[in-house]
Design a protein around this nucleic acid. Structure first.
Lengths: 112, 112
DNA sequence: GCTTGACACCTAGGTACGCTATGTATAGCA
DNA sequence: TGCTATACATAGCGTACCTAGGTGTCAAGC
């Protein structure tokens, strides 16, 4: 997967994953990799700054903990984050559908 | 449509449109707008630099002409551009499908 | 004991790209 | 005369992802 294809859609992915409960940064990385069979395999230098950005934006909150001698920073969705996740999903659908129309790809059933 | 959602996908759109014959920059703008019912309405500051970039990359060639007293720069796909268009379409399909899987959106029939 | 790898975090700097703002010029219409 | 549409161009901005490097813990292998 060309990496920078993500541009502008990483937030959608992160917020979506966060909907399934708190994750710490490293776990988000693994979760993304797992859900996509390794297709999306983001470096730490992408994940961590993105999480910080989303927290600064008020969409996530973090809390530190220690597990097995290793410190972890776990993130959860704020109410604003939940709304943003839905909104971004809508935006994604609209975007993908539109691109689909231009490239004349398979009709995408709008059973969204 | 959030503007920067396009990041990394603009080339796909431009090359795809170019498959339907030569267009000059302004016409590409209108074509994109028309094919998407105005959803994708790109400013000139996006279109022209992108076309220049694609020409520098050897995917397009341009030729000047004059129509109704106005000079036009028409672009056509090179053989490399044709290949790139197909390749980018494949990449888009893979990308969109993968995102789709993560966000758990409507099953996308893979009749691509 | 030492090394390697997985786990877990961080950030400075580079790069690429789309957009804003602005400029040029012609044609047509009010 | 001025406005709108057509048609081109680019300098500079902002953002976001990545590269490359750093810190530290723990477990396994040699």
């Amino acid at each position: 997967m060309r990496a920078d294809a993500l541009k502008g859609h990483l937030d959608l992915l992160l917020l979506t994953i966060m909907q399934d409960g708190p994750f710490h940064g490293y776990a988000v990385m693994e979760e993304l990799r797992a859900r996509t069979d390794g297709t999306i395999d983001l470096p730490e230098g992408t994940i961590y700054p993105a999480l910080h950005r989303l927290e600064r934006a008020g969409l996530l909150v973090s809390s530190w903990s220690e597990v097995n001698g290793r410190r972890r920073r776990s993130y959860s969705l704020t109410p604003g984050g939940k709304k943003a996740a839905q909104e971004k999903r809508r935006e994604w659908s609209a975007f993908a559908l539109t691109v689909q129309r231009v490239v004349g790809a398979p009709a995408w059933p709008t059973m969204a």
